[in-house]
Nucleic acid binder design. Structure first.
Lengths: 104, 104
DNA sequence: GCGACTCATAATCGCTAGGTCAGGGGTTCA
DNA sequence: TGAACCCCTGACCTAGCGATTATGAGTCGC
């Protein structure tokens, strides 16, 4: 079953991205980061979840290259990876005619 | 079912869509259906997976409204739900500035 | 109606995902 | 150096996912 290498590396990347997006909390985090950057503690304060849980969600988003983290003193600041998000969108949906009509 | 209402209904729909997309096999099925419609048996023949497994994947895609099924004699024909796919793309990615620039 | 064919569903199993608490590493400041 | 703060990682539990086999439900031709 592992001999199935017909699946392009692109699909594996898209799978990682979609897995990251397939969670309500992570979707909300992304929309939060659309406003501006946030420290982890600030994000935690916006949700009814423990800090480790948020930290893991952020880790998943980071693994998918959808956010970027940066140490700033004691804090770790997370910001949206705008370009990667747009690139992912094009990369996958561009394969479909109906979506191409909607893409620039 | 209505307990956690902090998350908009839109997000729950997007979560369903992204969960459906977060699997390599289902991504390939969608790209296959981009060509044209296929009967279940034809799709099964293209993968190294059992018929029930493919059937289940198709069910997930259908639940997410990404494909449409139609009985045709003994066969069940699946086709891509073009408009829903494009609509989902807009609905989610339209929230991000960096993506709006890429959307028409 | 019967048998053959096509697809969906049920029961099951192993693995992954998401949640918690506990603990540790990095950074700041006195 | 040590205390306080911020965040990440490890260990663990439960629930859900993806796969299988076995079986059931529609449909067609005879």
């Amino acid at each position: 079953m592992e001999g199935l290498n017909s699946q392009p590396a692109n699909n594996r990347r898209m799978t990682k991205v979609f897995k990251a997006l397939a969670d309500g909390t992570r979707q909300e985090i992304l929309q939060l980061l659309e406003e501006h950057s946030y420290a982890v503690g600030e994000i935690v304060a916006k949700f009814d979840l423990s800090q480790p849980t948020i930290s893991r969600h952020l880790s998943v988003l980071k693994e998918a290259d959808l956010v970027i983290d940066q140490r700033r003193g004691q804090n770790v600041i997370y910001r949206l990876n705008d370009s990667a998000l747009a690139a992912s969108m094009r990369q996958f949906f561009g394969r479909f005619r109906s979506c191409q009509e909607v893409l620039r």
